[in-house]
Simulated scan of single mutants.
Amino acid sequence: DQGGVRDELPPITTWLNRLLALRIETQNLLFEVFEQLMAAKVEGAIAAGNYDKGLETITAESIVVTDRRTVYTHPVSGAQSHVLTVARKDRIRPLGLVDALAIVRAEPQSVLLVNTRSNRAAIQLPTASLMLDDGTVEHRVRLLRPIDELRFGLDALAETHWQPADRKLFCELWQAEVTAVPEFTPSTFYIVAGLLLPIWRRLPDHDCQVYRIQTDAGERIIGRHIAPTLVATMLRNLGIDHVPTLAPEAAWTGLIEGKIGLQLAEGLVLRRSRVMNDYRVELVGFTEAMVPRLKALGLISEIISWKLKLFVPTGDEGSAILATLLDRHTLVGVTERTAAA
């Protein structure tokens, strides 16, 4: 900063030229550090459960669609959405003892480990450290096993049952585990394929992983993965399986009288509430992004105690607005309430 004029940072090309002007050994060292930092970031995201692989191609020994269920048909184009149950069979290729010992010989920092509780063997190998939120560095190690890998912080590893072992015991336990590994492992997963945009808001919002598969019959499919525990919830959100049927007029009467509450798709709930000494039909569970769309359907908004609330008007137009709302957000449950609620 000279004479009140602050120098601008040099452009990226200048930094690149400076990097390329370094000795090859120095460049290799910088790129190695960068790769370690990138690997640590990826491993941290995987461990935290928020790593997004994007479009993931699933490869397996066998992929078969065992069930195909139509859950939505577009009223104009006739395009359909399907929930697919996919059976997958993967060949297990364990790391043999000969290859494991070769890794040990090639890595001077490797350590032979045995779990004193489970009688399993592992090879301790160095791996990238992690920068924690408080700025401290967590030094970690990688445990290589016959069919998987584990990563531990050094402090966390000391609290486990993994202990250094002699070569003979390590070899016995490693070979015993390799021998016991089955040739294949079967599994089942669920995906929603076909026309997705009209029903996207009714799908679970915490898992947006997209799979690309090719079945044994040669069919190629791209669809969104659905966790097995959320399939039933998704079907209810789509108006399928154990969904109550209730005419809008009857639903409106029950709401006005405070006898029932309505559970709608996307986590919305309609109920009678006492607001400012008056009974109102209130909608709860909405997000900020939903507000313009819900107001366009006829709901009215009010700020009460510095909080935005949405209500269905209780006048003559209330029943019609409720019918429009139920058409847009599927009814997934009816709860009985006391008249005083």
Rank of each mutant, 00 (worst) to 15 (best):
A296Y: 04
L246G: 10
M276K: 12
L308W: 02
Y211L: 08
L297K: 01
E249G: 02
M234H: 08
S305H: 09
T229R: 06
L262V: 04
A247I: 06
D207Q: 14
I222S: 07
K309F: 00
W306P: 00
L235Q: 14
A265D: 15
P244H: 01
G194A: 08
L238D: 03
E219C: 00
R224E: 05
N237L: 00
D216L: 04
S273M: 02
N237K: 06
E266P: 03
L310D: 05
D216F: 02
P292G: 01
R293K: 13
G267W: 02
M276Q: 15
A193N: 09
L264W: 04
L310I: 03
P248D: 03
V231R: 09
R201L: 09
N277T: 08
E266C: 14
I226K: 05
K259A: 11
T215K: 01
A193D: 14
E219K: 06
T245V: 10
T233G: 05
L308I: 14
A232L: 09
A227G: 01
L310G: 07
E282D: 04
L270S: 08
N277R: 09
T253W: 13
T253R: 15
A251C: 03
L297A: 05
R202Q: 14
G298I: 08
A247T: 14
C208P: 07
E288Y: 11
R202V: 14
